[in-house]
């Protein structure tokens, strides 16, 4: 990095790459190991909820927790506040 780096407004591209990777890798790891139908399930639940309530696209969270002997499917939906 030369003297010009001092005047550079944008961060070095490697820093951007690292940040992007950190986010996407964490996201993909969290959904890893879950059944393949999970994204589809999430989408359909989303559609059903939207028939009744106006929710944001990321309001539905589907998560599979591995426990001894059985899996737990966790569903969490954040509904909009009363004022919103």
């Amino acid at each position: 990095m030369g003297l010009m780096a001092l005047f550079r407004r944008t961060p070095p591209s490697a820093t951007v790459a690292k940040e992007r990777l950190r986010i996407i890798v964490a996201q993909e790891r969290s959904s890893r190991g879950g059944p393949d139908y999970l994204p589809m399930l999430r989408r359909e639940i989303m559609e059903v909820i939207r028939k009744y309530v106006k929710v944001e696209p990321d309001a539905v969270k589907v998560h599979v927790e591995r426990e001894k002997g059985h899996d737990v499917l966790e569903l969490s939906v954040s509904l909009p506040g009363k004022g919103g």
Binding site: M1, A5, P12, S13, A14, T15, A17, K18, L21
Partner: peptide, 10 residues
């Protein structure tokens, strides 16, 4: 070194 490539540590 020029900040153009991910490092080993990264």
């Amino acid at each position: 070194a020029a900040g153009e490539m991910l490092s080993v540590a990264d």
